[in-house]
Design a protein around this nucleic acid. Structure first.
Lengths: 196, 196
DNA sequence: ATTCCCGGCTAACACTCGTTAGTTATTACT
DNA sequence: AGTAATAACTAACGAGTGTTAGCCGGGAAT
């Protein structure tokens, strides 16, 4: 076999995906070109195809990697034995942290998924729907147990997830607030809005 | 003069902008082509240029139309003499209503503004920053007056605006909830999270 | 030392893109 | 009716798209 990895501990395919994630976020999937990506990797456009199969394969990898990360976290929270409000808080915190230090990837899964080709698109949307459903079930469970204020679960899920995904406009313009402060403030608002 | 308007009470330019708004939302600005737009208008691509100057002029029109609508609403709320919590509620309700019945336009101003060419891009971002600043000032005012719970104003603005813009994923999949119920539920969450 | 193959390269294909030129049909005004 | 303006059309340009074919150098394996 020839050399397996080129630099550090990440394979070249991984480098491509990483550079692509920044590019896709900045310009959007449609406006980002393979030649542009190749420049950032330091290679000719055609050479990319020694490592990937297509432009949208990159998008698929990013989207499903993020989806799986959230999904497996949800599963471990579901099976844990915490009070509902704690469950929600830990899910919210994970989302915020992911948004803070996996920014590029999460952003793309949030905003560029519509460019996924079928059948990946349907697959992705099903996972998304399933995730939200189960998040809603946790809230509903909390309401019937009297641990959470009476609120329509689906709306609550929508508010929470959307609020967090809005962090991207904070990322762009590094305000005075630190990441830790932002997390604390956001958790406060989102959790106290749920408290009975 | 020749005919000023072609059908109903809207000029043809308006028809183009309306069809474009749906197309831009569905495919994204970059992926939506002028030929595609022309098909929806029922005309050849070149003919569009009798009514508009460029593809991005359409985007500019949409973005600034939305921005101005929100800005002028903000001004009238600022000068009104309501309790702070009422001010916030009426701003929130306007955002939700705009999102519900001007969906396409608001969505584009929210998500496709990055494709604006300079100097419109900077102009737009300045307006956006200004809007959020003034919204934050209202909240801060409410805190010092003791009408609102102590919370970092910028974070609150972020949560509120992002939560509302997340309605788009509700729009896509008309759930059991009606628009009115959604508005009520969302206001409840967002306002009770602010209440002292 | 020779074979093998990986991963880079150049060139090119087959489109699609936004937009312009030039022309014709249709409409409105005098 | 005749004229001027509007808005449609066809054709094309030049640039940029994702992707494939074919070639070549250099390190790994035998």
């Amino acid at each position: 076999m020839a050399k397996i990895q080129s630099k550090g501990n990440s394979t070249k395919k991984e480098v491509i995906i990483e550079k692509a994630s920044r590019l896709f976020r900045e310009k959007g999937f449609g406006a980002a070109s393979m030649r542009d990506l190749a420049d950032h990797v330091g290679v000719e456009a055609a050479s990319l195809y020694n490592h990937i199969q297509s432009k949208s394969e990159i998008l698929q990898t990013i989207c499903f990697r993020v989806a799986n990360a959230f999904m497996s976290n949800l599963e471990s929270v579901e099976t844990s034995a915490q009070p509902i409000l704690k469950k929600m808080e830990s899910i919210i915190r994970l989302h915020i942290r992911m948004m803070l230090d996996q920014y590029e990837y999460v952003y793309i899964a949030d905003h560029e998924w519509r460019h996924l080709p079928e059948p990946y698109l349907s697959n992705f949307l099903n996972q998304r729907r399933n995730y939200r459903k189960r998040l809603g079930d946790i809230i509903e469970d909390g309401i019937t147990r009297g641990e959470i204020k009476t609120i329509e679960p689906y709306t609550a899920v929508l508010v929470i997830l959307s609020a967090i995904s809005g962090i991207d406009s904070w990322q762009r313009s590094r305000k005075s607030t630190t990441a830790e402060a932002l997390e604390a403030n956001m958790v406060k608002y989102l959790i106290e809005g749920l408290k009975k």
